[in-house]
């Protein structure tokens, strides 16, 4: 019964998304569409990163590296898969969808593997030491791609076609993945695993004394967030004509951190808001050209000084919370 209901809900969401995507794609300027696409990718990045940085309190500033791993894998797999798929089901939207999603899954898997390789040694460290080690790994990943001749080295990878990577990243698929990632992260967060992750953030010594397998859970959270970054990277790759190592510099990792801090560390709702905010704000500031990044940095500093807990703190926006709010009852926290 439950699975039937869930299936129906999922179908309805998909149909809704498809309809919405059609309407928007038909009626909206390309420019606005691009903002929506970027916003969706940001949300995936932010919700994923928030699981380790916010919920678990283990700060990574190297997630651009996992995004890069996902992006390169997805682009490469997509290139090599597409002809076969097109041969099997005939070229068209269905073939593209199959190729894209297979490539995204492979991107998520390799990013998760990279997450294991980085996470297992790093997560023994805490605080800013952990932050610095992840930064180091992020840079190493970028340097490796920078020197990987088969993947284009410093000039980047854009596939065999001179027109670049196929533009598979549509509103529908971006937001379908947004729904998937948010659902997975939410279900993990509100479970025994999630409670344990929060306990690790609050007091690791006490969490260990309660038999929490802290190291394993930290790695799990880290790997899940790396996988989400991999998916975002894959979607990003097929939004651009090509990807370059410099797309995944330290600044990209910092962008992700800004997203989750603006919204409020530890809150999924906050991560969603932060991701959208980032896409929209950068777009609105586009006309300011070179002043844009100055303003951006200034904004970041001001947020840290004036409201370091972000817009949402660690609260979640849920139906229950809205109901309580409406009743004027106690605040959820």
């Amino acid at each position: 019964m439950r699975w039937l209901v869930r299936g129906a809900v999922a179908a309805a969401v998909l149909a809704g998304l498809l309809g919405l995507a059609r309407v928007i794609e038909g009626g909206l300027m390309e420019y606005a569409q691009r903002v929506l696409l970027l916003a969706g990718i940001n949300v995936i990045l932010a919700v994923g990163l928030n699981l380790i940085n916010g919920t678990t309190g283990q700060f990574s500033i190297g997630h651009a590296g996992f995004m890069a791993v996902g992006a390169y894998t997805c682009a490469w797999v997509g290139q090599h898969l597409a002809p076969g798929v097109a041969g099997a089901v005939g070229a068209g939207a269905i073939a593209d969808a199959i190729s894209l999603n297979a490539a995204l899954v492979s991107g998520a898997v390799t990013a998760a593997l990279a997450g294991v390789i980085v996470g297992v040694p790093s997560l023994r460290l805490k605080g800013d030491y952990l932050a610095i080690v992840t930064l180091g790994f992020g840079e190493i990943i970028r340097i490796v791609f920078n020197n990987w001749k088969a993947l284009g080295g410093a000039t980047g990878y854009s596939g065999e076609d001179p027109a670049g990577l196929p533009a598979w990243t549509t509103l529908f698929w971006v937001y379908a993945w947004v729904v998937v990632i948010i659902t997975v992260v939410r279900n993990v967060t509100f479970s025994q695993t999630g409670r344990s992750l929060i306990a690790i953030r609050e007091d690791e010594v006490a969490a260990e004394a309660m038999a929490t397998p802290t190291t394993r859970l930290k790695v799990v959270a880290f790997v899940l967030s790396a996988a989400a970054a991999g998916v975002a990277g894959g979607l990003f790759a097929h939004l651009q004509a090509g990807i370059r190592p410099e797309d995944f510099r330290l600044e990209k990792s910092i962008d992700m951190i800004v997203m989750i801090i603006v919204g409020g560390l530890g809150s999924i709702t906050g991560a969603v808001v932060g991701g959208v905010f980032m896409a929209v704000a950068l777009e609105l500031m586009r006309d300011l050209e070179e002043y844009r990044l100055v303003l951006y940095a200034l904004l970041l500093i001001l947020i840290m000084i004036l409201r370091p807990e972000g817009l949402f703190g660690s609260r979640e926006l849920s139906f229950g919370w809205l109901r309580r709010k409406a009743r004027g009852g106690e605040p959820a926290s």
């Binding site: 409670r195 929060i198 609050e202 007091d203 010594v205 006490a206 969490a207």
Partner: peptide, 8 residues
């Protein structure tokens, strides 16, 4: 030195 998980 009490170590409850304060925000939970």
């Amino acid at each position: 030195n009490i170590r409850v998980f304060r925000s939970m």
